[in-house]
Write a protein that binds this DNA or RNA. Sequence first.
RNA 1: GCCGGUGUAGCUCAGCUGGCAGAGCGAUUCCUUCGUAAGGAAUAGGCCGAGGGUUCAAAUCCCUCCACCGGCUCCA
Length: 641
Amino acid sequence: MSDITVELPDGSELSVDEGATVEDVAYSIGPGLGRDTVAGVLDGDLVDKASPVYDGVRIEIVTDQSDEYLDVLRHSGAHLFAQALQRRHPEAKLTIGPWTDDGFYYDVTNVDLDEADLRDIESEMAAIVEEDLDIERFERSREEALDFYEDNEFKRDILETEAAGDDPISFYRQGEFEDLCKGPHVESTGDIGGFKLLDISAAYWRGDEENETLTRVYGTAFPNESQLEEFLERREAAKERDHRKIGREMDLFSIPAHSPGCPHYHPNGMTMRRELEDYIREQNESLGYEEVWTPELNKADLWKPTGHYDNFTAEGEMFNWEQDDTEYGLKPMNCANHAYIYGREKRSYRDLPIRFSEFGTVYRNEQSGELSGLLRVRGMTQDDGHAFIRKDQIQGEIVDVLEAIDEILGHFDFEMEYVLETQGDNAVGSDDIWAEATESLRDALESEGLEYEVDEGEAAFYGPKIGINAVDAIGREWTIGTVQLDFNIPERLDLTYIGEDNDEHRPVMVHRALLGTFERFMGVMIEHFNGKFPLWLAPEQVRILPITDDNLEYAEAVAAELGDFRVEIEDRSWTVGKKIQQAHDDRVPYMLVVGDNEEADGTVSVRDREERERQDVPVETFRDHVERERDEKHVTVDFLK
RNA sequence: GCCGGUGUAGCUCAGCUGGCAGAGCGAUUCCUUCGUAAGGAAUAGGCCGAGGGUUCAAAUCCCUCCACCGGCUCCA
């Protein structure tokens, strides 16, 4: 028998017999490790401990101390659920049940479940944990497996796809329950110390809307009860940052039932939006954009040549209707209007790039179940812009936009992720054009040294896209800014410029949004800051708290010295403690407490929302600092830092 | 759109085995004039999401719709 070599996590190499399993490798490292082995990671793939290793593989042994252990445990959690389900609802058909980042789900069918059923199934799960059933891997021949799943077309489908070519087929058994599964799993159902079924939802088989609707049950599992409790508490705490809750508390916006998906900005929210707008206007100007404005209401004909009409009406996503025998629509995008302005005149190569920006309000008829506060709306305003450029200007243009986005997002301290989205099924234009455009975006990302992921087939219909994603309070990713390169719309609209050679040439369009939409950006921002906005954005920047009513006049004088800030005076006859508490609740960045001492010295006592304080501060000292803090767009309140 | 859940005062929520619509916070008025996270009292505030049905009687039971929340699909 010949030896093979495997590489351990510390970089060292170990020689083992050919045909050795993960567990064998663990035992040859040490008997204790061998006994503790739950699973293995071979070249990054989590596998059963009975899996054979191969020459040159990087191997990690998974024990109950490993990061991967939780994934294994949750995979077993999914089986625990499935076994309990089959005991209580034998008619239910199982499909797939993987682990996820924070738990597991199992998609089932031929059974109707509601919340009460989940509680009932949970008690059966508890009984199975109590039974402490061994979880064992075994094999069936392909033929036996197909036979076993005679009545389950989903499992048979898996045998024909994921498990195609496998023979024998890997199964797992615990008590009377058997499931097609490549593993790995924990040793026994008793290892699952804490679990909970969290939610129930509809899901489509293989994620395709055209396929059967399945019932998906979400759950989570932990080695013990206290870790489960911790998880549930973290989940509750995340809800405290929900932008809808903070939006109500701070009176920023509302989305009334009379306009589903169409936020109304209240004065406080509009103050913040206007600050964002002003900032983006500056950025657009320095990027060379000229601001335009185009109407929301247009004839549907506008979007027919560009392809928008076919794309958006096919999914019922466009608001359009017939009036006076003419079809009208609300614009779902601004490109067609901007292209129109470009196309009105003959353009010279000397004029390019020509860049139009617009805070363009667009409407999309998103499915009702999709709407989600400010993060997913039907009426939204994009900080949109289109640059019409020559081919030789592509690289420079994209790089400039990426650098601007990087600078802008630096003022918000977001964790963000770049994603390159490539040609999809709905693409218009030739593959060559797409390939060229995609490469241009890739080159720009790489020349900027930006890390990015690639999402194949996810681009908009007219061109590949760089998406900039941010994360909300409960970990969902949302695209905010985008940069898209488009060779197609110029072609379809026959846009031209006159080149140096006095011939007509085709410009390239760059579609870009820096923040994306004000709605989504504000939603993400509210959750990111938990309502504690940087000074420049805070609806109320300073609140003056007089100790007694006798100090009101001095409070007015201080407010006057801070004339170009958003300052309020707390004039209710409350105790000082109450006034401070209220200001904290309102997340006001700075409180200035003024009493007789301050009045006598011409000073203020500064307290910030982080509970730091300093007495006897001359008003000018405070003002000079906060002017800088505001104008330089500091992320945190830092006068008392 | 699909599956599950939720709609009661400005906000957070109780009431829901049918029998006069409640609390706390907030608001208003009065008292208090206070030194760094809740001073006191009184008052006002509701088509119990909308429509239909069952019943002597519906916030409560049934049906339909609307909106919202989580998830699926989709997307900035």
